[in-house]
């Protein structure tokens, strides 16, 4: 047996649970080795000192400790709001709840993203259409009484009508209806309609409908127009 092992066995005799053979080897080594014999004597002194230690009796302060603990417990008692927050925290800690919250947030974000994507697509589409129309108009030549600024103003609401090449005029729906209502009070007044959209609005206007219903001649003319597919009637 080597000295290192012997010293370890000396100090941890109980803990290492030496076999009889190891015990015998240890005893033989101690008998033969001065250094380990000295260590054995030190260890014996140590164990006897430790075994004979006498401790002070602990002062029993049950009442004092109980008072301190109870007052601290009272201080620890939480307000209703704190309890609610704690309950919510405990609830949120659960993996299933956290997963559900994360999934909901993800779903909302994706919905917004999809909506945004659709809106962007629509804008792109409109921009493409507008640019195609304006290019066409610009390509039509410098003599035309219309330019892209007129179209922009018409769309933004600054202009109530838009003149197109030839005799075509597009009127804003509100201004056209206003015009029809004005004219309906003036017998014999004339309204020049020169595009299909305005004609459709005219036919669908209640005042005009009344006039048409009363006049058989007019009725025939407009029915023919509708039958020929020039406009669609909203009845």
């Amino acid at each position: 047996m080597k000295c290192n092992s012997a010293i370890k066995y000396i100090y941890l005799q109980k803990e290492l649970k030496l076999s009889e053979k190891q015990q015998k080897q240890l005893e033989d080594h101690i008998a033969a080795c001065d250094k380990c014999s000295m260590e054995f004597s030190k260890a014996g002194n140590y164990f006897s000192t430790i075994t004979n230690l006498k401790f002070d009796e602990s002062p029993i302060e049950d009442e004092l400790v109980a008072n301190h603990v109870t007052s601290r417990i009272h201080a620890l008692r939480k307000s209703f709001l704190e309890q609610m927050i704690e309950t919510a925290e405990q609830f949120l800690i659960k993996p299933a709840v956290r997963f559900a919250i994360a999934a909901s947030i993800l779903f909302i974000c994706l919905s917004y993203a999809a909506e945004e994507y659709r809106a962007l697509n629509k804008i792109n589409l409109l921009e493409n259409k507008f640019s195609a129309i304006s290019n066409k108009i610009i390509e039509a030549g410098p003599d035309l009484p219309i330019n892209t600024r007129d179209i922009k103003n018409f769309i933004s609401g600054d202009k109530q009508y838009l003149k197109l090449p030839g005799s075509w005029v597009i009127m804003k729906e509100t201004s056209l209806i206003k015009k029809i209502e004005e004219l309906s009070n003036q017998p014999g007044a004339e309204l020049l309609i020169n595009n299909q959209n305005d004609l459709r609005l005219l036919l669908n206007h209640p005042e005009v409908k009344k006039i048409i219903e009363k006049d058989d001649e007019l009725k025939k003319i407009f029915n023919r127009i509708i039958l020929e597919g020039a406009v669609t009637h909203e009845n």
Partner: peptide
């Protein structure tokens, strides 16, 4: 019930103190 807990403290204070002191 804090009174019950107080009794528990008094019951085991000696035991706990002995461990802590040693």
């Amino acid at each position: 019930d804090t009174d019950a807990f107080r009794m528990l403290v008094k019951e085991y204070n000696g035991y706990a103190h002995a461990i802590a002191y040693k």
